[in-house]
Design a protein around this nucleic acid. Structure first.
Lengths: 191, 191
DNA sequence: CTAATTATTTGACCTAAGTCAAATTTACGC
DNA sequence: GCGTAAATTTGACTTAGGTCAAATAATTAG
């Protein structure tokens, strides 16, 4: 796990139990069927979705092609940052790729707790900081690596994604055509 | 100006004057010569740099080519988020492109004020939220637009950048070769 | 088990954009 | 203003990766 994320988790676990209890009042568990949508374009994203079990992804439609922007494994948090922060309709989908169990962290309840306890505010800020840095790194990969390098980097950093997901989704996450990804894989296999 | 940034500015201006005064104690003004560096790889970024006058950019070196990641105009805030947040050495440069006047907002002083006043903490969080959303949008541009479209988008959203900066820097900001950018411009001019 | 989908691979071809080199234009020092 | 250096443009060529189409391979339903 990323060290910064680990720090967030540790701090979260060491919160005053009273605060934790109050925070968890705003949590709801929910199960989604494979293929179903946790968020669709037009809806406002009013919660963070903590993945407990299963796989999910975030993607948008562009010229009748799907671009996957994030893939979620257990312990990841799914949210349309743009929609959540700006309180405006989302322009993307969050979709369950398997049967999925999530904990829903409602915005307005969480917001109250944040404003009451500085420690919770700091945790939330750390989460966004991590997100910003993650985006910066991902952007850098697109600016400096070709398709094979991006694939190898993903294989190294997130082998589970490669193992668990179909070529079409991995390709759309790497922003290459599935034919190209297939060629990259066969080239690597034969070397 | 972006509406979210405007909201941050407004909130900042409406802070309790006592808080503002305390916050501004941690501010220092400084002037940089054209071409000089406000941050270099290896240094830890321990401040936000508010541009008062002049132009600056952030860039990194990749395979003896420069990639410009941000261009700063007056009122923008320059910071290596990665280095600032993770408290680790930066891997990029922040450089004055003209004679430059900045206000330096020192990390540790600002941190004290943030933890004392929730309103300041919220402002800082909003700044990072904006940053994350900005990165997300920029990533989307690279994933969905070709070189000409990125150029036209920049021309529309940040005409000043196009007017004020040399082709070589605009090209490295759009992640195209300067020859390609030159061709794009001549094609647009002739149509 | 077999048929029918669906996913993946392979092939042929095309295009956006990169590289290298040369020509031109612009800016700057004296 | 003149010469030199830097910035920009133009040309010729190459290449990564896209598209379209067909061939396999893997799943799934019945």
């Amino acid at each position: 796990m990323n060290p910064y994320i680990k720090r967030i988790k540790d701090l979260s676990n060491n919160l005053d139990p009273k605060i934790r209890t109050e925070m968890e009042k705003g949590f709801t568990d929910k199960v989604f069927l494979k293929g179903s949508y946790l968020l669709r374009p037009g809806q406002i994203c009013t919660s963070h979705l903590l993945i407990k079990k299963g796989l999910a992804r975030k993607f948008y439609q562009h010229k009748n092609k799907e671009i996957t922007t994030e893939i979620y494994l257990p312990d990841d948090v799914a949210v349309s940052l743009d929609s959540y922060i700006m309180r405006k309709p989302a322009n993307l989908y969050i979709q369950a790729l398997t049967e999925l169990e999530v904990t829903i962290i409602d915005y307005s309840r969480f917001d109250k707790v944040k404003n009451k306890y500085n420690d919770v505010m700091i945790l939330d800020k750390m989460f966004i900081e991590y997100y910003a840095v993650w985006f910066e790194q991902r952007l850098k990969e697109f600016q400096t690596m070709d398709a094979s390098q991006r694939y190898l980097s993903l294989l190294e950093k997130e082998p589970k994604i490669i193992q668990l997901l179909p070529v079409s989704i991995i390709a759309s996450y790497l922003n290459v055509s599935l034919e190209t990804l297939s060629r990259i894989r066969s080239k690597i296999a034969s070397s």
